[in-house]
Design a protein around this nucleic acid. Structure first.
Length: 343
DNA sequence: AACCAGAACAACCGCCCTATG
DNA sequence: ACATAGGGCGGTTGTTCTGGT
């Protein structure tokens, strides 16, 4: 025999809480404590089921609840935690004082999920989307936008707006760079991936040079990551340095606390010269690399504190958007060579 | 001003786990 | 061992808000 529903009594009120009901609930709890939720409504004079009272208290009335917009740091923390433990909202909430699991879950579903998708990142796996059509769409969008730059600074004959183009660039480059990032962790001997020129365009931007890596370097990198004959798609060859990506959720959860201790304390676990070569990951791409990514986030956040872009997102955006006419053809060239058959 | 669509958020539902008798 | 209560959790739904036309 299964457990009966908690609120099968007829006549119990449902729906939004009124200020009077809130008042009664808060008043009762402040005087008597929580006690058992099932009996609480009766004692508090509420025509609600106990479960409804509990949710109202836990998600809304509790005095230690923090309201208002999520900060950049909270966003980043949610993304990092989600990449490690998945949809464990209650666990994630324990790392964000004052935020409820419900609030975090809602925020994820309405904001962060979309943000990651827009950047070409799969919000479930936190890896670049391997959907080849998605990448083709981006590159085609970019190609179209390059046709019309002479008519107006903001639009082209096809009506593509500049910001759409920029988003496309952002997504495409992010996909490419994440590929390098994942690969570089294991392919230490790859001569094409170790040079600062190809591995860290953000560094050059932050140093004020704003020089893009040369096209040949990028293509050599792509070729290295995708040897001839591998037709499985540009981003399917991403590899990891150990088998931890295949661990079960439970194993991942057990590692979570250690991972996040690592986040805060440190950076010393990773050689500094290699840290210099890491790309600024926008999100953690897996349990093994999450420490790298948070470290990288801190590293770049610290470096960017004296620069105008205030966040990693903004820095990437600026890197991609502040280009001139010549970089337009630069992108076109890269795409032509990357997807020769798709144009 | 009215309408509509999409976003945001609060609340509910159903399942699960644990404690207890 | 089993039934049941209590509570936690994640997914989903329904309502409200907001911005655009």
């Amino acid at each position: 025999m299964g457990r009966p529903p908690c609120c099968n009594e007829s006549g119990v009120k449902k729906g939004p809480w009124t200020p009077e009901e809130d008042e009664k609930l808060m008043d009762y709890i402040s005087k008597h404590g929580r006690g058992t939720w099932r009996t609480l409504p009766k004692h508090a004079g509420l025509n609600r089921c106990g479960k409804s009272c509990r949710l109202r208290w836990e998600n809304y009335l509790r005095p230690d609840i923090k309201r208002g917009k999520f900060t950049e740091e909270e966003e980043q923390l949610i993304i990092n935690l989600h990449s490690v433990i998945g949809n464990k909202w209650a666990k994630i909430a324990t790392h964000l004082p004052g935020r409820t699991d419900n609030e975090i879950k809602n925020y994820w579903n309405t904001n962060l999920r979309k943000k990651l998708l827009q950047m070409g990142i799969d919000p479930e796996t936190h890896k670049p989307r391997t959907d080849f059509n998605h990448l083709l769409n981006l590159s085609q969008l970019l190609g179209l936008s390059n046709l019309g730059t002479s008519t107006s600074p903001w639009t082209n004959p096809l009506g593509l707006q500049a910001d759409v183009t920029q988003i496309a660039k952002l997504q495409l480059l992010q996909n490419m760079l994440q590929l390098f990032n994942g690969t570089s962790l294991v392919n230490i001997g790859n001569p094409y991936l170790l040079g600062n020129q190809i591995l860290n365009p953000l560094d050059t931007f932050l140093n004020g040079t704003n020089i893009l890596p040369d096209k040949d370097s990028i293509l050599r990198g792509l070729e290295y990551a995708n040897p001839v004959g591998n037709n499985s798609g540009l981003f399917l060859s991403q590899t990891y340095s150990d088998s931890s990506v295949f661990k079960s959720r439970t194993e991942k959860e057990n590692e979570t606390n250690q991972e996040f201790l690592g986040y805060n304390q440190s950076i010393s676990t990773f050689p500094e010269n290699q840290a210099e070569n890491l790309l600024p990951a926008l999100v953690a791409s897996g349990p093994r690399s999450s420490t790298f990514n948070q470290m990288d986030f801190n590293y770049n956040a610290a470096r960017m504190s004296t620069q105008s872009p205030s966040t990693t997102f903004e820095a990437w955006e600026k890197f991609l958007i502040d280009d001139d006419e010549s970089s337009g053809s630069y992108w076109k060239e890269i795409l032509d060579l990357t997807y020769p058959l798709s144009w």
